[in-house]
Amino acid sequence: MSKKFKVSICSGTTCYVLGGAQMMVLEDCLPADIKDEVEVVGSSCLQKCHEPNAKPPFVLINDYLMESASMTKVIDYIREHR
């Protein structure tokens, strides 16, 4: 069965260095209430960092692209949209 949310964390160098690194442990930090609905994968550069005024780190949650992403922002988003 596929899970409801697929979270792709950009681990291209730009995102990784500017805050993405800390999200690499997202999978282990998911709260119990949403844990079973979320699949976490790493992704190579999502090509968003090259745009002017880009706000890395980027995370893709299904089709939604989140900028200036953080662990809490991702968790909040999922709670709101489940």
Binding site: S11, G12, T13, T14, V17, L18, S44, C45, C49
Partner: peptide
Amino acid sequence: IFIAAGVDVVE
């Protein structure tokens, strides 16, 4: 510096 130089280590 990698970011500034446009070098993506993963690639």
